[in-house]
Design a protein around this nucleic acid. Structure first.
Lengths: 141, 141
DNA sequence: GCTACATGCTCTAGTGACTAGAGGAGCAAG
DNA sequence: CTTGCTCCTCTAGTCACTAGAGCATGTAGC
């Protein structure tokens, strides 16, 4: 007979922490599992896969609501995948934007650190650049 | 005589929203300004600069606590700027790390979107990749 | 002076996505 | 049988705001 999967075991296998699993159940992202006699949750393999799916999507920066939609799609494999495609595309655009602004920021931070000649704060470029946005190398953020 | 700067005007000039300015006052990031007869806040140019400083630092991803430290440094320009330099440097390392992981993520999202042939969800790569981490292009996240 | 209406005030509560802790029960090993 | 781990529920806290209620004040047109 199969050993039942406890919440701790589910956490280990899926990479989602125990309180987070309970939280996902609470917000309806994961169905409430069956309980043992002692009122403990026990999970099936499908639950583990669902949790891994959620974890992966969270790591990719998808919001819970987007994940909810993706999970609905997954549950009904005959739907056209345009919705999923759209969600992933929107996220891609976001990520590209974020990379651009982080690159601008990196240039600026390098300028700051480089400009700091370890003197007094009065001549420190970190403070100076932060105080005056006009001194930014890339002022478009 | 100078026109007094209202909170709304301060918001416009600094780029920090009105409720956020009040919030910054509440958490002690910005000193409580003088009030008019009618109990309205009015600001000085130094306050506007401080707000712009905060806004800029927030955009650069500095946390409020780091900003608080930077502001203390700014208030006392005879301190060595190593502390400010250290904060900026730590932030630079973070930003570089974040750019790297976002690039990995971008690759993965592109793979997903590209792989989606606008068919049914059953064969959708977006769903598939999310469900199985092993399919990632860059599995190191 | 009167009437709108914008802007300001304080206060409380809500957001997202968890995380931490209290206080107790169940369970396996020695 | 006791020790210690995992589990249970419940509430409250985190960060950096944001939203809204219910009032007071200021300003522009008539």
């Amino acid at each position: 007979m199969l050993k039942e999967i406890s919440i701790g075991e589910a956490a280990k296998r899926s990479g989602v922490k125990v309180p987070t699993i309970r939280y996902y159940e609470q917000i309806g992202l994961l169905a409430a599992p069956a309980r043992t006699d002692g009122n403990r949750r026990h999970y099936e393999d499908t639950d583990i896969r669902r949790l891994a799916f959620i974890r992966h999507a969270r790591e990719l920066g998808f919001e819970i609501d987007a994940i909810r939609t993706l999970l609905h799609l997954q549950d009904d494999p005959n739907q056209p995948c345009e919705t999923a495609d759209g969600i992933a595309n929107a996220r891609l655009v976001e990520v590209e934007q974020r990379i651009r602004s982080l690159n601008a920021l990196k240039a600026e931070l390098e300028l700051m650190v480089e400009g700091c000649r370890h003197g007094k704060v009065g001549e420190c470029r970190v403070i100076e650049i932060l105080a005056d946005h006009g001194k930014c190398a890339h002022p478009h953020h």
